[in-house]
């Protein structure tokens, strides 16, 4: 784990995460408007609405503009014959090593937004942990999945 892994995830991941952020922000904006309307109707204090508004602005800034590119920059993975090497995390960088002999199964997952961008998540499960590599291009995810499942076939000891 001296060097970071060399493969990046698909760059359209940034767009996907931005859309996720947008959805959250829309929900927050609705709540904020709701608060302002109730405050106006029932003559409550506008404090709550104001607080909620500032919170929404901060979250929009973070989740749409700041975090997605940073997150993408950090996300890397590398596949060896014997192990999977993953790096992620923005402030705290996490590097994980999963030996092939420990892999129990691999899945690919795809939601509606990912499908729109022809992306898929790859999920690797061991007896104790689950690791996800998000937003790989569809073909790559499938290829990786097949490859890992072949590599994981190496004779396993008990658990």
């Amino acid at each position: 784990m001296r060097y970071p892994p060399n493969q990046r995830i698909a760059s359209s991941a940034i767009k996907v995460w931005k859309i996720h952020g947008l959805i959250y922000s829309i929900i927050l904006m609705l709540i904020t408007t709701g608060l302002f309307i109730t405050a106006w109707l029932f003559e409550w204090s506008y404090w709550f609405g104001g607080l909620s508004l500032s919170l929404t602005v901060v979250i929009i800034l973070l989740s749409i503009i700041l975090i997605p590119p940073l997150r993408w920059r950090r996300w890397r993975y590398q596949l060896y014959d014997q192990e999977i090497y993953i790096q992620h995390g923005m402030i705290i960088v996490k590097r994980t090593l999963v030996p092939m002999v420990r892999v129990q199964h691999v899945d690919t997952k795809q939601g509606p937004i990912l499908k729109k961008f022809n992306l898929a998540n790859l999920e690797v499960t061991t007896a104790a942990t689950t690791h996800e590599i998000p937003a790989l291009s569809e073909t790559e995810a499938e290829q990786l999945r097949d490859q890992i499942s072949i590599l994981a076939r190496v004779e396993q000891d008990d658990i």
Binding site: G89, I92, V93, K94, V98, R102, T126, A128, T129
Partner: peptide
């Protein structure tokens, strides 16, 4: 089952890191 290293940028400067090992207990990690 898996080995993980966690390190923030400041921790990297200080040359310290957190190491996490995962094993199987009953049916969960």
């Amino acid at each position: 089952q898996a080995l993980e290293l966690k390190q923030s940028l400041l921790q990297k400067r200080l040359d310290i890191a957190t190491m996490r090992t995962s094993i199987l207990n009953n049916f969960i990690g």
